[in-house]
Simulated scan of single mutants.
Amino acid sequence: MTSPPISWQASGDAAVPPPGATPIPPAAPRRRHRGLWIALITVVVLLVGGAIAAAVIRVPKIIISPGSATPLDRRVVAIRGAPSYAHRGNLLFLTVKVSTRDPNLFSLLFAELDSDVDVTDRQAIIGCASYAEANDFATFEMRESQDWAKAVALRRLGYNVTTKDPRAVITAIDCKSNAVGKLALGDFIVAVDGHPVTTSDQVPPLVRAHKPGDEIRLTVRRNGQELTIPVRARERGGVAFVGIGAETSYTYAFPVDVRINTMRVGGPSAGLAFTLAIIDDLTPGDLTGGKRVAVTGKINLDGTVGPIGGARQKAAAAREAGAQVMLVPKEEFADARANAGSMKVYAVSNIDDALAALHASGGDAVTN
C-alpha cells in the first residue's frame, strides 16, 4: 500500500511533520566546507605569524634616507671679533637619516620600495662598533669638522691659526682585529708599550717593532681615565699590525670667535659647508650670487675635500629644499647628479675648487 504524500505544516517558526509522518534525518555536514574552514584558518594563522615575525625579526642592516637641508644663517654660524657681512642667498648643509638600530623586515620592505632610500650592511657603515659607540664617535667627528672648517676658512683669508696639544685618536677598528671589544672609536692613544705617543704617525713604527702574534700594550685615555689594554698583533704584508686607524687631533687657537650650532647633528659631512659659510660671513659680497646652494663633503686640514656617503639622499634633500646648485666631493658626483633633478651639480676636490664653482654659478669671487 502506497503511503500518502507527506505535507508539512508551519508551527510557529519551525516546520513540523503531520502526525504519524516519519521525520527526515538532517543531512550530514559536507566535508568540503570543513576543509575550506581549515584552510582559511591556516592562512590567517600564517599571515598573523608572518606579520609578527616581520615586526620582531631584525637584521644587521642600516637604512639611509634623505634628511634635512638647513640654511647656514646666523642662527647656525655666528661670528664675533671681526666684521661680518649679510648675504642674499643661502648655503645649505645637508644631512641624512640613518637608522639607529637594526631594522625589522617591515622597515626593510618599505625602504626597498623607496627609490631615494638605500639599505646597506651595518658593518659597512659602523664596522663592529655598537650603535651607541658609533653615535658618540659621530659627535666627536662633528666637533673635529667644525674646528677643521674654522682653521681652513680663517687660514684661507690670511688669519694665523695655531695648534697645540696634539693627540692620536682612534678613528677605525678592523672587525678582524684582536682590538674589537677592547679599544673604542674616539680613544686617545697616549702610549704604546710605555712609549709616549702624541701624534698618529708615531703609532705604526712602535707596532711594527713587534712580530705578528706578539702582545702589544696600548695605553688609551677614555672618558678621562687611562687604560692599558693588551692587543695581539696580526700579520699584514709580513709585518705586525693591530688593525686600527688613527688621526691626530689638536687644540686650536682661533683669532676670530666662530660659533657653530649644529643642533645635535653628528658626523663630518658638513665640514665644507661650514668652511664656505665662514668665508662668506667674513668677506663682502655674496658667494652664492643670491642662490640657494647645497653643500656636502668632509673638509680636511689641508683644504682637501673628502667623500662622506649618502650623496643620493642628500641630493634628494637639496632638491626638496629648492636648491639651485649643489657642491659634492668629486668621488660622489655621479650619485648626486643622478638624483639632483634640475640642480646644477659641481664636483670639488678642495676649497679652491669649491670657491671657483660658486663663482662659476654666479657668486662673487674671494679676493684674499
Rank of each mutant, 00 (worst) to 15 (best):
T219G: 00
Q202D: 08
Q202Y: 08
S3Y: 10
A311D: 05
N368F: 15
D116T: 14
A21R: 00
K182T: 08
A233V: 12
Q9D: 07
K211G: 05
D114R: 12
A347P: 01
L282F: 05
Q146K: 11
A134D: 03
I216C: 04
D201F: 14
L40F: 14
L358I: 09
G213N: 04
R259C: 01
V117P: 09
S249L: 05
A323E: 01
D114V: 12
F333R: 05
F137P: 01
V305H: 00
S65L: 02
A14V: 15
L358H: 00
L46K: 13
Q202H: 06
F110Y: 15
D118Y: 04
A172N: 06
I41Y: 08
V295Y: 01
A315F: 07
R143H: 02
L94V: 11
G49R: 08
P83Q: 14
T139G: 10
I173D: 00
R234E: 13
V258T: 07
A69V: 09
L287F: 06
G238K: 07
G50S: 13
S349E: 10
A321V: 07
N300T: 04
A51H: 07
H210L: 07
A323S: 00
T163N: 10
S107Q: 15
A82G: 09
D116P: 11
G267C: 10
G267I: 06
V45Q: 12
A51F: 14
G306L: 12
A184F: 06
L358F: 02
V239D: 00
V119F: 06
R156Y: 06
W37P: 03
R259N: 13
S342C: 09
T251M: 12
A51N: 13
A124Y: 12
V345A: 09
N368D: 12
G362S: 05
T219Q: 11
A191F: 04
A172H: 06
T70E: 11
V197G: 00
A354F: 01
R74A: 11
A28I: 13
G245E: 05
Y346C: 04
S107M: 14
R58P: 04
T367H: 05
G267K: 06
V77R: 02
V77E: 02
E226P: 02
I6D: 08
A54C: 10
H33I: 15
R292W: 02
E247T: 11
D174C: 13
A246P: 07
H87V: 11
A317E: 07
V16F: 05
T275L: 09
W8A: 01
R208W: 09
M343A: 01
G285R: 09
R88D: 12
N368Y: 15
S269H: 08
L94K: 01
T22R: 13
A340I: 11
H210N: 09
G362L: 03
E144D: 10
Y346F: 15
A340Q: 05
H87T: 10
N104D: 13
G341W: 06
R259E: 10
C128V: 08
L109A: 15
S349T: 11
F254G: 07
L109F: 15
A336W: 03
S68P: 04
G341V: 12
D147Q: 11
G362D: 04
A323P: 00
V152M: 03
